[in-house]
Design a protein around this nucleic acid. Structure first.
Lengths: 348, 348
DNA sequence: ATGAAAGCGCTAACAT
DNA sequence: ATGTTAGCGCTTTCAT
């Protein structure tokens, strides 16, 4: 119980207990079956007496296992306050990892030079990594060139040929469903706010929207599509643009919820009522979506579960040594709230 | 450029460069002044050729410095999606740490047994820790009993006698200011939604509210105060309760923004207009506050900056070896938006 | 300016 | 059932 200046080492513990260092090590690693109950108790008692705590670093070095995994996030995503997606993944990962005794490192990239980038990530301090939504052209995609760390990708569906194990929303299918919902409500003039051109998900969502519109006989004119940064501010700007289109669009698909919130607010500022004058739908169903005014109709993506499953898959790879591969999709679910309604007949 | 099965070690590097392992080490650690330019170049070239990457674990063990810090969060705060405060601190910490070459571990507690708790935290894998809003009675407060890791506390102002270095909002002063603002607007019947009884900040905010009301001649009746969990759901419940008070309260102070958002929505559901029928103010100014309907009048706490400064202070302690102590406050700033207005005269 | 050698605190293989 | 020993990959004296 006394405060100790120097943490005791295994060697000191062994001395205190009057056993060899190997015995002490075994016992502390729960290989108690190998030893007599008395010895076990003696070692444990000594550990308590000394306040012994194993040094994780030394243990990692010797065992070549750190029991730590890294979650790698691109600088573009690294402001968590603005990125409910990354935050939700993180929650899922933590939830899965902590009970298993794994620790978590957050690796936010700063230097995107491929060589030094991998110095930062694969420095022996993690047993595996989760890549959060790597961007198109990201040096992270050079992965196989630089490392053999077990790895799972979330939030980006990469070309299968790259060889990654990806866990992502079924973006195309979900966007198709969302677009069709609007179509069924009777909308025809449906605008779209796309995400950044360097995000796979943004491309996939855009593509599914275009395809679905085309399948229903509409070639989408370019001015129905506005760019955005996937953030609230981008939603504001995009809405300003889409509200100019004449004749007026009757619906806007925002390709994620933060953007949708921006669109909603821009509409309010311009005196355009939602859903009476225009329908607005989002994508992701972040916690905020339900609190929007009006509550946002959106595609729910099980982001938290993606985090959970990613952690699971990663641990499995680490523990079996068998790399996993291929793209795996989590289905979306249409959450109908109040921001979309049939277009007013007069407008047709 | 070829993919390598076994990462090269310093020893292999040294051989490849034809120097001793000590020399190689020096050069990789930028102690190039000690060596001839040719040697330096030879080692660097060999490193590039082999794709050498230092093993951080081995380095940490030998140097007894991990260049990693831990951010410790209580289970109660550990769902980031619901906790914009923690998320904002995290952003600040990351921003400060990354450029300095420090890595970040997220330590979410699961086992709150004091002994094993510290096993998890102080296991040699971090050079210092940031304690995020430790709760009243938390085993984290036994800190000095179990460890000498450099440490800074954010989000809780602990009793000075405990000996911590705390960085927090000036809760009392800020709440006083907020209450006085409402008083100046002409409100007298001001209700309060308090936070969990195990959070220091909640107690401090409540206390300042009570004191300020008393100073202005009002002994607050118990039914003007509703409890909450500091989350949206708690705001809903609290509002249900406070809206029953007769004669009606003209204002409600929510002791954080998430709660205020709940109050706002509950009011809307009950047909109580804000600010016409009742004023509502929050505390923290999380990003969401500005997006509320109506935009929330609130006390801004520089949460992000608290994260930045915490990281700074921690690094300083680590690098100088001098422990810091005492409570340090960041001033709040009243952000006047649209959720508070003078009470309707008729009500007086 | 460089090399040799002694650890850092632990695990794991091998003896006994 | 227990002890001995050789590392894990690096940093850091201390010689030279």
């Amino acid at each position: 119980m006394t405060r100790r200046i120097q943490r005791p080492t295994l060697k000191q513990l062994a001395e205190e207990a009057g056993v060899s260092i190997g015995t002490a090590s075994n016992i502390l690693n729960n290989k108690t079956a190998l030893h007599s109950p008395e010895t076990v108790e003696r070692v444990l008692a000594a550990a308590r007496r000394l306040g012994y705590r194993p040094n994780r670093i030394a243990r990692s070095l010797a065992a070549r296992r750190t029991h730590t995994i890294g979650i790698v996030v691109e600088p573009q995503h690294a402001v968590f306050t603005r990125n409910p997606y990354v935050t939700a993944v993180l929650d899922g990962v933590v939830e899965q990892l902590t009970p298993q005794g794994y620790h978590l490192k957050i690796i936010t990239l700063r230097d995107m030079n491929p060589r030094t980038l991998w110095h930062q990530i694969d420095d022996g301090s993690v047993d595996g990594i989760i890549l959060v939504a790597p961007l198109i052209g990201s040096p992270l995609l050079d992965y196989f060139h630089y490392t053999q760390l077990p790895c799972v990708v979330v939030g980006s569906t990469l070309p299968e040929s790259l060889g990654f194990y990806c866990l992502d929303a079924a973006n195309e299918q979900a966007m198709r469903q969302l677009t069709e919902y609007l179509l069924q409500l009777g909308h025809r003039r449906i605008g779209f706010v796309k995400g950044p051109d360097n995000q796979w998900s943004a491309l996939q969502r855009l593509h599914a929207y275009l395809e679905t519109m085309r399948a229903h006989g509409t070639e989408v004119p370019t001015d129905w599509i506005a760019p955005s940064n996937y953030e609230y501010s981008g939603g504001i700007a995009a809405a300003e643009q889409l509200l100019q289109v004449r004749p007026r669009l009757t619906a806007i698909i925002a390709s994620n919820d933060m953007v949708a919130l921006g669109v909603l607010d821009a509409c309010a500022q311009h005196g355009v009522r939602v859903p009476e004058d225009i329908s607005v739908v989002g994508f992701d169903d972040v916690p905020l979506a339900a609190l929007a005014k009006p509550p946002l109709t959106t595609m729910r993506i099980p982001i938290h579960d993606i985090g959970v499953e990613a952690a699971q898959a990663l641990l499995q790879q680490i523990e079996t040594g068998e790399p996993l591969q291929g793209n795996h999709f989590m289905e979306g679910e249409l959450i109908i709230r109040e921001s979309a309604a049939p277009p007013r007949l007069a407008k047709g």
